[in-house]
Design a protein around this nucleic acid. Structure first.
Length: 693
DNA sequence: TTTTGAAGTCTCTCC
DNA sequence: GACTTCAAAA
């Protein structure tokens, strides 16, 4: 097991000559102040497009320039992609020294540290990471084991249980309070929740399983409760820099406190106006309270926007001015040219789609590459119609966001085989693959798992299990496959890929049996095989997959493999930190953006508003926000409803836009014969109904 | 006990 | 539209 996951996939080697950096000349005054800030806590409040990344990169460069050993700098970012990007940019400034800077997500870093120091806190060094749905499944097993799953009384679903658990761990809010706020109907069940959580925790520990929350929690607990190990871990770094600080939670703040308690060299960068992850426990309080939490902290505010034209900023400033508590800042740009953003009213979804595609082609003709354009939306499924149209018109695109690929049942199925090999105690994966086998159902699976547990999960324990007659064949096939896979030796390249090939020899037939649309699923598995080729061993592969899921799906046959000029479709969340020349925000319909189910509280609505702000501020030169009037809504029975523009685009905000109304496309056949008198005067009928003349 | 087909249930954001 | 849940058949 490699100590350092950053090595995969390998960063390309470029012989960049080191140059001396003229910080004062290459940064504006505020950026310069932040980048060259001496030791001690520093808060950088950076509005959208104000060169936040640039400042952070230069700060890293400056630290290295000052003689801080690069390997003693830790850069925590929100995605692994942004860490890589920043380090690549730092490399251009200070040469390959920056390659030794440790960069990654909180979870990725936690993983690295726990593999190394976990054993000193009683953790096994070879734990398996549970992703969210694995964790939910395990929670389900706990619920069933406690007999709370039967339908005699109403008990929350495993997803709800997990959500409450996760929120509790990440926010320190007592379970009772969470129930009161979010699930009043379950308040009386607090004790049962606690029992399930206790069982869940025990189950994880007995089976060497670690969920996402544990990664952070164990890190924090080591820092807080094991002084000797804490000194070692905190002693690894002299400087810690955190990006997107507005999206960290209480637990992450605790970790930072522990990591920095000696030197206090903590730099955090964030924008309270872009806080969009409260749903997973992030709290805006971290950034708002930073100056109080770290006495003597300096604060630098970046307000000059280098990204967008002034007309676009006028619109986004108006949008966010409606928000409640925030560090007040007014972004301005010297890019005064440019046209007002568009607010496009479409008659229906098809027309919205057609508008977006036509406009994209138009801009493309004007010389804007596809990769400089993006279409953003609130949730992954909202781009379905657009994807079909783009495919039909041969426009290549990448879709970001969502975890589709790894969530796909067939991908998880194949991974379950590998995970069982890696960790024979992985109960969740055992259930998953046992239930796949013909002749094995819930009862047999449970018996098998129980019998393996009795034999301490040894490798042979599954072979010793005596299946009922109907499952004999499946059992034998599985035993053979697992033995076969275990027999594979060495760490030669492509080993994981070959394992997947062998698993598929058994699994592909099952897949064909179970699903109707087989081809896209098979090609997902092909893709999994390819991805596996980039990893040296199974453990690294599985961990990396859980921590940094590949975003691409092969559903529609387009991908960045063949094309390098591809349009980006993305959820607003996944678009954070990115920018494009032209941005389309679609589905700006009330109930869609903001989403209807996010309207429960004022806080949720505010978060939706900030999300819309994030989406719109991605644009450099062209911004178009569109909404269809008529939405075919299957929920309300096959009917069309007349929809309203998003509440965030109120009358005042709309003034910053130019209105574009797309005319209804009338099918020739449907055009009424204007010469014929109407059969009935509908409007008069309606007026008469209310007695008005 | 497993399988199968039909009815029913939601629909999100992500490490 | 994809997945879960339920009831009845094999």
């Amino acid at each position: 097991m490699s100590d350092d996951l950053r090595a995969y996939p390998p960063r390309e080697r470029t012989a960049e000559p080191r140059r001396s950096v003229d910080f004062a000349a290459e940064l504006n005054a505020a950026q310069f102040k932040a980048a060259t800030h001496p030791d001690g806590p520093l808060l950088i409040v950076a509005g959208a497009g104000t060169g936040k990344t640039r400042t952070l990169v230069y700060r890293v460069a400056h630290l290295i320039d000052r003689g801080v050993p690069p390997s003693r700098i830790l850069l925590l970012t929100f995605t692994r992609r942004s860490a890589q990007e920043m380090l690549a940019r730092a490399e251009k400034l200070v040469g390959h020294a920056s390659r030794s800077v440790h960069g990654g997500t909180f979870h990725g870093t936690a993983h690295r540290l726990l593999r190394r120091f976990g054993p000193e806190g009683g953790l096994p060094g070879d734990f398996t990471i549970l992703d969210q749905s694995d964790a939910e499944d395990l929670m389900g097993l706990s619920r069933t084991a406690l007999g709370l799953g039967d339908k005699t009384k109403r008990f929350p679903k495993k997803e709800t249980l997990h959500h409450v658990y996760s929120r509790h761990v990440n926010t320190d809010i007592p379970v009772g309070a969470i129930l009161r706020d979010e699930y009043p109907r379950f308040v009386q069940l607090e004790e049962e929740f606690a029992k399930v959580f206790a069982d869940y925790t025990q189950r994880k520990q007995q089976r060497d399983l670690v969920d996402y929350d544990d990664l952070l929690l164990y890190w924090a607990l080591l820092l807080e409760n094991a002084p000797a190990v804490a000194d070692k871990i905190a002693g690894l770094y002299d400087h810690i820099l955190v990006d997107e600080y507005q999206d960290t939670n209480v637990l992450q703040a605790r970790i930072l406190k522990g990591m920095c308690r000696v030197h206090r060299n903590l730099t955090v960068v964030g924008d309270d106006a872009q806080s969009i992850y409260a749903f997973r426990g992030a709290t805006i309080r971290n950034i708002l309270d930073f100056p109080r939490e770290y006495h003597g902290a300096s604060t630098v505010t970046l307000e000059e926007n280098y990204r967008s034209t002034q007309p676009i900023l006028d619109a986004t400033n108006l949008l966010i001015s409606r928000a409640e508590e925030r560090f007040s800042k007014e972004l301005y740009s010297r890019r005064t040219g440019g046209e007002k953003p568009w607010l496009v009213t479409a008659q229906d979804e098809q027309q919205q789609t057609r508008f977006v595609v036509d406009r994209i082609l138009e801009l493309h003709e004007q010389g804007i590459p596809l990769r400089e354009m993006a279409v953003l939306f609130r949730a992954g499924y909202m781009s379905a119609d657009l994807e079909i149209e783009l495919t039909a018109r041969n426009i290549p695109f990448d879709k970001w966001g969502g975890l589709k690929f790894l969530e796909a049942a067939h991908v998880k199925d194949v991974l379950a085989f590998l995970r069982v090999l890696e960790n024979p105690r992985d109960e969740v994966s055992w259930y998953r693959l046992l239930l796949l086998m013909p002749g094995i159902g819930e009862v047999t699976a449970r018996n098998a798992v129980q019998s393996m547990a009795d034999l301490a999960w040894s490798h042979e324990s599954f072979g010793r299990f005596t299946p009922p007659p109907r499952a004999r064949e499946a059992h034998a096939a599985l035993v053979r496959l697992l033995a076969d896979l275990r027999a594979g030796t060495g760490d030669e390249d492509g080993r994981v890929t070959r394992e997947i090939v062998r698993v598929r020899a058994l699994y592909d037939d099952i897949l064909r049996e179970r699903y109707d649309r087989v081809e896209p699923r098979l090609s997902d598995l092909d893709q999994l095989q390819t991805i596996a080729g980039g990893y040296p061993d199974r453990a690294t592969f599985l961990s990396a997959l859980a921590l940094e899921p590949p975003s691409a799906t092969s559903d529609l046959g387009f991908g960045s493999d063949t094309e390098d000029d591809t349009l980006v479709l993305s959820t607003a969340h996944s678009a954070k930190g990115r920018e494009w020349d032209a941005v389309f925000v679609i589905w700006a319909v009330d109930g869609w953006f903001p989403m209807a189910r996010a309207l429960g509280s004022e806080d949720e609505i505010e978060e939706e508003r900030r999300l819309m702000y994030v989406a719109m501020t991605r644009a450099r030169n062209h911004l178009a926000v569109s909404y269809p009037l008529n939405v075919y809504d299957t929920r309300r029975g096959a009917d069309y409803s007349l929809d309203q523009v998003s509440r965030f685009l109120d009358r005042g905000v709309r003034k910053a836009f130019q209105r574009v109304t797309l005319q209804a496309v009338v099918e020739p056949a449907a055009v009424p014969d204007a010469s014929a008198p109407p059969e009935v005067d509908l409007r008069a009928l309606l007026r008469g109904r209310f007695g008005s003349s």
